[in-house]
Design a protein around this nucleic acid. Structure first.
Length: 300
DNA sequence: TCGAGAAAATGATGCTCCTT
DNA sequence: AAGGAGCATCATTTTCTCGA
């Protein structure tokens, strides 16, 4: 095998898994593993990597701003949720809240099972870099962060400050992680957060998430595209999104807009594999989303 | 600005060793 | 002996830098 084409996003061993998922999604569209994401969280997204010791982190999309005040530990260190794990957690939380219609969320019967449900791999070893350790840390970072949605208009500003899960019990005894019933972890979603996420959930396919979970950017884009394509279809007109807007909304850490464009284009190739009906077009100035059949058939 | 590419960070994998 | 935690290492993604 010649080792060329590093620039081709669809080369390499990771591509095999992506293609497996793509084939499954094309061949078995009815086997959709329905999951949901909240509209506000689709329009503004979490950090990709650790923002460090900042007081506040934010992203803006037009008049809508998502700001995060991190959970601060006993050493005054700011702990932000970042990367793909909190995204997977959010997809799962929104799905549970939407389906069970309850603020009280049980995190499955065992740690192993829970990890599998949100799309992680419990057999990924221990250590600092294993999924279990990272999940533990990101759960606390996510649940205890203060999230603010701000809607700023010319003469008004409406806002809601909320903690995702102000109450909860998280069991973390690795020795008992595989035993059912001994793992009684639960969280109670904040009233405002629950209201926000269940008001307008966007349906997505969990299989696609698992295939894209290496890249926070691809996860964000997938959820956003699903929502945008749906809205384009409903209004029967294409949505044109300038790169600048998309950049502020989901990639503000990319210091260079051009870096962002390149990465988005690579991510789009992957997303089109797992979302075959999506109709897109890119130009030098903008990304154009045409009305497309949704990835997920509507329930009703 | 643009392209190339290195560096740093995150994510995945597979092995060893320890506990049970 | 089985299974999981810890570790080393590899792969991919994200961020930064440099020179035209």
């Amino acid at each position: 095998m010649p080792r060329k084409m590093k620039e081709d996003a669809l080369e390499g061993s990771y591509a095999d898994k992506l293609i497996d998922a793509a084939v499954d999604i094309r061949m078995n569209p009815e086997a959709v593993e329905r999951s949901y994401m909240a509209r506000q969280l689709v329009q503004c997204t979490l950090p990709h990597s650790d923002p460090g010791n900042l007081m506040r982190w934010s992203r803006t999309n037009g008049h809508l701003t998502l700001a995060i005040r991190p959970y601060v530990d006993e050493h005054n260190k700011a702990l932000y949720p970042y990367g793909s794990i909190p995204r997977l957690l959010l997809f799962w939380l929104v799905t549970e809240a939407t389906q069970k219609k309850s603020r009280h969320i049980r995190l499955g019967n065992s740690l192993d099972g829970f990890m599998r449900e949100i799309g992680l791999n419990p057999r990924t070893g221990g250590g600092k870099r294993g999924d279990a350790a990272r999940l533990h840390s990101q759960m606390e970072r996510l649940f205890r962060a203060i999230i603010t949605f701000e809607d700023r208009r010319e003469w008004s500003k409406s806002y809601v400050d909320m903690q995702i899960a102000p109450k909860g019990t998280l069991w973390w005894d690795p020795a008992k992680s595989h035993q059912d019933n001994l793992w009684e972890s639960w969280v109670e979603l904040g009233e405002e957060f629950f209201a926000a996420i269940t008001a307008a959930p966007v349906p997505i396919d969990m299989r696609a998430l698992r295939a894209l979970k290496r890249s926070p950017l691809a996860l964000d884009l997938y959820a956003w595209l699903t929502h945008t394509a749906f809205s384009a279809t409903r209004k029967r007109e294409s949505r044109i999104i300038p790169w600048e807007g998309l950049h502020g909304q989901m990639g503000a850490e990319y210091a260079q807009l051009r870096d962002f464009k390149i990465k988005v284009n690579m991510a789009l190739k992957k997303i089109q594999l797992v979302y075959p009906t999506l109709k897109l077009e890119t130009t030098g100035a903008a990304l154009i989303v045409h009305p497309s059949p949704t990835a997920i058939a509507s329930k009703s």
